[in-house]
């Protein structure tokens, strides 16, 4: 995938933000709220709209099955991939999103190592990179346009997951409460100049003037 997972080790959870999660098994997007000390998942599939902080996208390995808090071995996209800490860690992504007021209006962390989710995020990130040239210094406004079933396995092991289909509907400057920082676009790395591999032939001899054609 274009996100590469070829990036440097940088473990740690950072700030504890409330989360937003995509359940690949049901193809639904949830905002997890706390109500009287209880987790409450609010379905925002139909209303999901957010400014995604892809400038600070992290990739690496995540283990959600720790029996406690998930463990992250992440690096900022573009740096070197960390070592995989354990067989239980799977490739994953983590990023921060500012939800639109219709679906919560606050800043949330999203992280997943579900393949179906990563497929959708990868495509979204490709769209982000493609649009960045014309929207330098801005972040994408993203909606969940659809979910598509992804069937894997056979017989009794046949399962269906859902990949999110995200769509960039606009670009905005970084919201103040999103935190992080806008990266200055890196100057493209200079590369050694090509020497030349185009074969050329000697100039052809000039054809004699053809007076008859033009009277």
């Amino acid at each position: 995938m274009a996100l590469g997972f070829n990036l440097e080790s940088n473990s740690g959870g950072g700030n504890f933000l409330p989360i937003c999660k995509f359940d690949a098994r049901s193809g639904r997007m949830f905002r997890r709220d706390r109500d009287n000390g209880e987790n409450v998942d609010v379905d925002i599939t139909k209303t999901f709209k957010a400014v995604i902080d892809f400038e600070n996208l992290e990739v690496g390995f995540i283990n959600f099955n720790t029996g406690g808090a998930p463990h992250f071995a992440m690096a900022t996209y573009g740096d070197t991939m960390p070592d995989k800490p354990s067989p239980d860690h799977k490739p994953g992504v983590r990023f921060v999103a500012k939800l639109a007021s219709a679906c919560g209006g606050d800043v949330r962390e999203m992280a997943s190592n579900a393949k179906a989710f990563l497929v959708g995020v990868d495509q979204l990130h490709n769209d982000y990179l493609a649009g960045l040239a014309k929207n330098a210094g801005q972040l994408p406004v993203v909606v969940l346009a659809d979910t598509v079933p992804v069937v894997s396995g056979e017989g009794s092991k046949r399962t269906t997951n859902y990949s999110p289909v995200f769509e960039i509907t606009g670009w905005v400057k970084r919201p103040d409460d999103l935190g992080g920082s806008t990266r200055v676009a890196a100057t493209p790395k200079a590369t050694p100049p090509a020497t030349g591999a185009n074969k050329v032939s000697a100039p052809s001899k000039k054809a004699p003037a053809d007076d008859e054609d033009f009277g």
Partner: peptide
């Protein structure tokens, strides 16, 4: 035989 056209002349001079 082959004749190749030189590219990036300025960069090569700078080198």
């Amino acid at each position: 035989s082959a004749t190749y056209q030189l590219e990036n002349k300025r960069e090569h001079v700078q080198a």
